[in-house]
Nucleic acid binder design. Structure first.
Lengths: 147, 147
DNA sequence: AATGAAAGATTCACGTG
DNA sequence: CACGTGAATCTTTCATT
């Protein structure tokens, strides 16, 4: 993993369909050299895969950052159980700061988001929630939108 | 958006580097027909981009929510250009609220995060940043690499 | 790691129902 | 209007140095 590998990865994350020819030009290496590096990165599991970011026109997705404030006697597993089996949650982190959990959720609209929040607050480990609704996706290298 | 479009999207989601030839074979259409459909899906914004899922081995991933406060005369494209080609950014949203942009970033550690933030603030459209470092990944249904 | 030749993939103009 | 055909071009692959 040297700086050339990193350049190759950068270019592939920006556009996974970049040709070897283009990559070779920017890293100033021959095409087979670039190919061997990519093959190695794939074998070593550094490159996990190539994917397409799809936004289906019918289902407009509403994204929000939702934070949880947990009650005093809440364990790690209790928190996980709060959103276990909730497809709305794309990713959830424990965090330092005022709230205990920060998560990125994806809903079909405000009604869906609202009922999701109400459900969360039903859990005895959840003392309070705080949400911030996102307006638009500016960039995403995470595959969203497939339900 | 018919069933053939959906098949094409599925295949590209599984592997963004699938060749037109392969796609044409599975959807039983000619290669130019597939190309025209993909071009249309890209133009219509259904396909938002192609990206690579990278997982660096041995490196502990540090996630953070980074917010941007933009200067007055900042357009949508200016914002996008701020983090274009930055593999640290997993997803970025425009948002209502005090900050203008909310993004989820993934770095190799505090040093990496710090230099990333310094880089961001070098951009004339960025007036201020606010960051919140995540402690642990509690749940993730998106490929982020290990936390 | 580079070269070059062969195989494969992409692009484009044009013709068809 | 979306599809297919075929030729020109570009890209990938692989044996060789």
């Amino acid at each position: 993993m040297d700086s050339i590998d990193r350049q190759i990865l950068n270019q592939l994350t920006v556009n996974a369909r970049t040709s070897l020819t283009d990559i070779a030009r920017t890293v100033a290496l021959s095409i087979p050299a670039v190919k061997r590096r990519i093959d190695r990165l794939e074998r070593d599991g550094v490159i996990r895969g190539y994917t397409t970011i799809v936004e289906e026109p019918g289902t407009r997705k509403l994204h929000a950052i939702v934070e949880l404030f947990c009650t005093a006697r809440t364990e790690r597993d209790d928190v996980i159980r709060v959103f276990e089996g909730r497809p709305e949650v794309l990713i959830a982190f424990s965090a330092a700061g005022d709230s205990d959990v920060v998560m990125l959720v994806q809903t079909d609209g405000t009604d869906h988001l609202e009922s999701f929040l109400i459900d969360l607050r039903r859990n005895p480990h959840v003392a309070q929630t705080r949400s911030r609704v996102m307006l638009n996706t500016l960039m995403g290298r995470i595959p969203l939108g497939q339900s």
